[in-house]
Amino acid sequence: MYSLKLSNICKHYTGTLLFKDISFELRPGEVLAITGWNGSGKSTLLRIIAGLVRPSLGKVEMFMGDEPIPKESRRKFLGMVAPALALYDELTALENMDFFCKVRGIAYDRESCLNMMERVGLTENANKTCRNYSSGMKQRLKLVQALLHSPPLLLLDEPGCNLDSNGMKIVEDIILEHRQLGMTVIASNEKREVDYAERAINLSE
């Protein structure tokens, strides 16, 4: 049983305040949406949760039961998709997956990777180098990368960007499936995605 807790998160950067006093708690089965205008700090907040950016004030905690998970190992318990997170261009999709499995200390299983590729509709292109991928295909591969280690916390920053209607459908399926057991945070202004969330935080207010 995992949970995520943010208390009084504030971030300012070179003199401008992005947001302050962001506090919430998230439990498995819950979906939280973060909305706000461009530049309101949606991506930054997700990066703070992921541990890529240090908040100016406040803290992010993750718990396994009552046990706090140390910050260094938080990465094992979360998967993230964001426009700024790129995969390795000069590798093929499968090689990318192989690398992320090994680096995370998971045994690489070609079958299950292929299954996941099939799910996002990339089976035919699994052995193409990602340089030749379209931006929508890259986005699909990023989804696979985020789900590879079955994380209890999923951070989706504009998960639908560059995707066609089929792709959007895949994202919705993933959110619905993850909602059954895991925690999800979506940063988006897309109504279709935000509608899956029970709660929403608007950073522009």
Binding site: S73, K76, F77, Y88, L91, F99, K102, V103, R104, G105, I106, S112, N115, M116, L147, H149, S150, P151, P152, L181, G182
Partner: peptide
Amino acid sequence: MRSGRWITQNEPLTYLNEATAIWLRD
């Protein structure tokens, strides 16, 4: 594909495995 596949071992050997993966990828 569902929860429970992450491994939380911390032996030095796993550091070397991961380092090797990064080395080979590079």
